[in-house]
Design a binder for these strands. Structure first.
Lengths: 138, 138
DNA sequence: ACAAATACTATCAAATAGATAGGATATATA
DNA sequence: TATATATCCTATCTATTTGATAGTATTTGT
């Protein structure tokens, strides 16, 4: 399961992609209302995405958030890794958050293989999906 | 990520499959030692698998655990659902643990589709792997 | 100056993860 | 029947994560 936080992040990004314009940023309050996301929680999420160079923000009047890069350049994989961390089901099989399992010799591990396979199939789908491809559906 | 508990469960089952014999059950202590799993924690896991009709147990001298069904009949999917619950990444996309997302209209949900795809690809792999197919590798 | 927006810091409650402890119960065998 | 051995059961505990809220500081346009 991905966290609510991650689900909110994806939905917020899709909403921003669908609603930003050259001269207008999208405000937290609007996203929160339209997507039914707790506002203060959403603030944290958007700031997080901004710190990770997915969004840019502007304060004050007419402030808000915009995508820092084209929506077609932001994959689900990237967003999920920022918010939730590893996508793989085992730490020892994670590409971006590798950790060894203390209890087993990896070369002899009998379950590693399956989870590498799951990881690859999962990434195949998630790498192929961008905020743009999700936004277009609506 | 799957939990440690789930990883332990799978490893324990593979160990049992590799070590049980018609006249001999496999003991918690042996599994714990060989697979480096905290013993008392493992007890809980094995009892859980027994309550869910994956294992059978016998108490007292020469007691221990055996697979209740052929190892080729026990898929990873089944084990993971018992120990960790849903395999899907969103509750609204889970086949066995469906829950709706309070905040969204499912028909209009823009992210549901991708996660159905991930679910299907994941289940394709996990349904195809059994305790037997893992045990044979070693 | 003022209003409106994000930024930041601190905090909190509930759930889950990951165990550990200690005693009850069943079973084989001497 | 006594004993050793193994699972069974209940209770408990700590740390982390999840999901969120509150309050204040800061920036910005008019």
């Amino acid at each position: 399961m991905i966290s609510n936080k991650c689900k909110y992040a994806i939905k917020a990004l899709v909403y921003i992609a669908n609603n930003e314009q050259d001269d207008m940023a999208v405000m937290t309050a609007d996203i929160a209302r339209e997507q039914q996301i707790p506002r203060k929680f959403l603030e944290i999420i958007l700031r997080d995405l901004r710190n990770n160079r997915i969004l840019e923000s502007r304060r004050g009047k007419d402030g808000g958030f915009r995508l820092l890069r084209p929506a077609s350049d932001i994959s689900l994989t990237e967003v999920m890794r920022i918010i939730d961390g590893p996508i793989a089901m085992l730490p020892c099989v994670s590409l971006n958050y590798y950790r060894s399992c203390d209890e087993c010799e990896e070369e002899a591990c009998q379950i590693k293989g399956v989870f590498e396979l799951v990881r690859d199939k999962t990434l195949e789908v998630l790498n192929g999906k961008t905020i743009k491809s999700l936004a277009l559906q609506g």
